[in-house]
């Protein structure tokens, strides 16, 4: 019997992104596009222009979503969840 990994028990990677946000209007826009995508948990660090995302989506999807805001965005790397 072949057992598939249970997606609910998989530990999702935390990904860190740079997003060029300058104020709360910008971070609200980021919040909204991520909510619309769904399947994400995230923290926005406005002063450091960083968004940390915990998600089942891959990095490309997440980056595309962040770029929808029209802000500069780039992938910084994985962040190990403690």
């Amino acid at each position: 019997i072949c057992t598939l990994p249970d997606p609910s028990s998989a530990s999702f990677q935390k990904h860190e992104f740079f997003v060029d946000m300058t104020c709360e209007g910008c971070s609200n826009a980021v919040t909204r596009v991520l909510h619309r995508l769904g399947g994400v948990q995230f923290d926005i660090d406005l002063p450091n222009k960083k968004v940390c995302i915990d998600s089942e989506h891959n990095v490309d999807t997440l980056l595309e979503t962040l770029k929808k805001t029209g802000k500069n965005a780039s992938y910084l790397g994985e962040k190990s969840a403690q």
Binding site: D20, M21, T22, C23, E24, G25, C26, N28, A29, R32, T69, G70, K71
Partner: peptide, 16 residues
């Protein structure tokens, strides 16, 4: 609704 600064303005102008 939701634009608060010039960078919002520029983002929207740039994309649209």
């Amino acid at each position: 609704e939701g634009m608060t600064c010039n960078s919002c303005v520029q983002s929207i102008e740039g994309v649209i």
